[in-house]
């Protein structure tokens, strides 16, 4: 018979990075990515001010900061910061997922979730879907490789070719990805606020509400462009 006294009294494994530190990396990198999403969404809406508005805006993104810094500097700094945020976000998520799996080596035969929202439960796989979407999205509208028009600098023409009614499946895929993103952001914003200790009993419901409203606004803003193109509102 094994008695409790025979067990190691202190675990030998020392943790180099605590889960709370990893959560802080998730929160900070997530905040950087959300800041980018806001700017990205506002930039997209320029399409509603005409084809030249969005084309000029996209050209400005490359020259912004001139003449203080050479053309493209700000663009590349942003790209490097975003890449670092994405790597930090995915790396800490992967480490935390591994720890979560090790923390419950034997699963329950019978256990159903009673509280966590759908958004909270789908953070990990939702994140994977978003990552795959981002790869497609970059190949589509940044490099133009997968875009039917694919001419560098002709943003409006690329968008209109991309979301043409006969390419409804592309629009559908974008819509699903944006909805997945909205779910991710909804739980992510609230969770990040909790992680940095900015949530209290009094503000909890408000913060969850703010996260929900923000996620919905973000989704509506991002979805407006492909739907406007598909329905012929913008041509």
């Amino acid at each position: 018979m094994v008695t409790l006294g025979q067990r190691a009294t202190k675990p030998t494994a020392r943790v180099r990075v605590t889960s709370l530190q990893l959560k802080l990396i998730m929160a900070v990198s997530g905040a950087i990515l959300i800041a980018f999403l806001i700017v990205h969404m506002l930039g997209n809406l320029k399409l509603f001010f005409g084809a030249t508005a969005i084309d000029e805006y996209s050209a400005w993104l490359r020259t912004a900061g001139e003449p203080a810094v050479p053309a493209g500097t700000l663009l590349w700094v942003t790209r490097i910061v975003l890449l670092a945020a994405v790597i930090g976000h995915i790396w800490s998520a992967a480490v935390l997922t591994g720890r979560a799996h090790r923390a419950r080596p034997v699963r329950y035969v019978h256990r159903r979730p009673v509280n966590g929202s759908y958004a909270a439960r789908t953070m990990r796989w939702g994140g994977v879907i978003i990552a795959l979407f981002v790869i497609y999205h970059l190949l589509d509208l940044t490099t133009g490789t997968l875009n039917p028009h694919g001419v560098h600098g002709e943003v409006a023409a690329n968008l209109i070719a991309d979301f043409a009614p006969e390419r409804w499946y592309v629009t559908l895929f974008y819509a699903l990805a944006v909805i997945a993103l909205a779910f991710h952001v909804r739980h992510g914003v609230w969770s990040a606020l909790q992680t940095i200790g900015r949530s209290s009993a009094a503000t909890q419901a408000t913060l969850k509400g703010v996260a929900l409203v923000f996620a919905v606004l973000l989704a509506v803003g991002f979805l407006s462009v492909p739907f406007a193109v598909m329905t012929g509102l913008v041509s």
Partner: peptide, 22 residues
């Protein structure tokens, strides 16, 4: 306490709130 919590092999929090219900 956080260091010991992690060394014991408990996982990280994802703020699902299941704990507070249980």
């Amino acid at each position: 306490m956080v260091e010991q919590h992690d060394a014991e092999g408990f996982g990280g929090c994802t703020n699902t709130g299941e704990c507070a219900v249980a």
